[in-house]
Amino acid sequence: MTPKALLGRVALYALLAAVTFLVCFPLVWAFFTSMKPKDEIFLWPPTLWPSTWTLENYRALLQGKDAYFQAGAAGGGQPPPSAFFLDWFLNSVIVTLGTTVISTLVSTLAAYSLTRFRFPGQRAVPYLALVGYMVPSIIFVFPMFLVMADLRLTDTLLSLILGYVCITLPFCMWLMWAFFRGVPIEIEEAALVDGASRLRVFWEIVLPTAWPGIVAAAIFTLIVSWNDYLFGRVFMNSMENLPLTVGVMHFFDGTHVDWGLMMASSVIMTVPMAILFMALQRHLVAGFGAGAVKG
């Protein structure tokens, strides 16, 4: 390797290390903070490594309401926000999975029909959908709240699912549309000639070919609905119905912030998405369709 190439290599690694540090440092900091007892969090100068390790924050989050009531503490009073953490977590999981299933399913079928059947407006639909996605969701959220109120759906998980479907579906549809456009129709015709029914062609030929696109759409929907704050904040009000993002804001109470709980919540919120993403990303291989046709 020439000195110049070596220098380039060193510079590249330095840059990569810097970016990695920037991305990971907050996560690492959050993790260590979540393992510290309260009095250690505000030490000055700050420490990264906890001198005493504690799972107290995690215990508080994961014990749930029942443990609180069984302990018979504070006769009849409202339990502290941390007691609702498990509810919030479950809410977020339900809403996220529900949204993802509906959005990917509907967008896949819609995009397929957009590329395979002829009807007026066929070309305009995907572009309009994309434009719709570019409008900030703050514009939609209040009108949608009024609609939800009319439907008597406010403060239900269904309202959140519907809301997230509204903001994720157009983009997913555009994504799948772009994807299906690249899948040559001859592949399906070959399968028809081979004797497969239309449904079978869709199931055995189209879906496997479109799998990377479906995974991409699903990951997008997962991230949007798991991380959303706005819709949860506007649509929901009872403590036990909140999604995680809105719920953890109760660890602020105007006068002080419980950083230990905040950081433990962040860790718990990040881990499932990280695992999911790592599990799914190998399906995102490019060049899936290469070789089906000439070239």
Binding site: I187, A190, F288, A292, K294
Partner: peptide, 20 residues
């Protein structure tokens, strides 16, 4: 008859192999 019921075989210009 649909293509599958005609007992024909077809070689497409693009070959149209099933990529997966």
């Amino acid at each position: 008859l649909s293509p599958g019921d005609r007992n024909i075989a077809m070689v497409f210009q693009s070959y149209a192999l099933y990529p997966t």
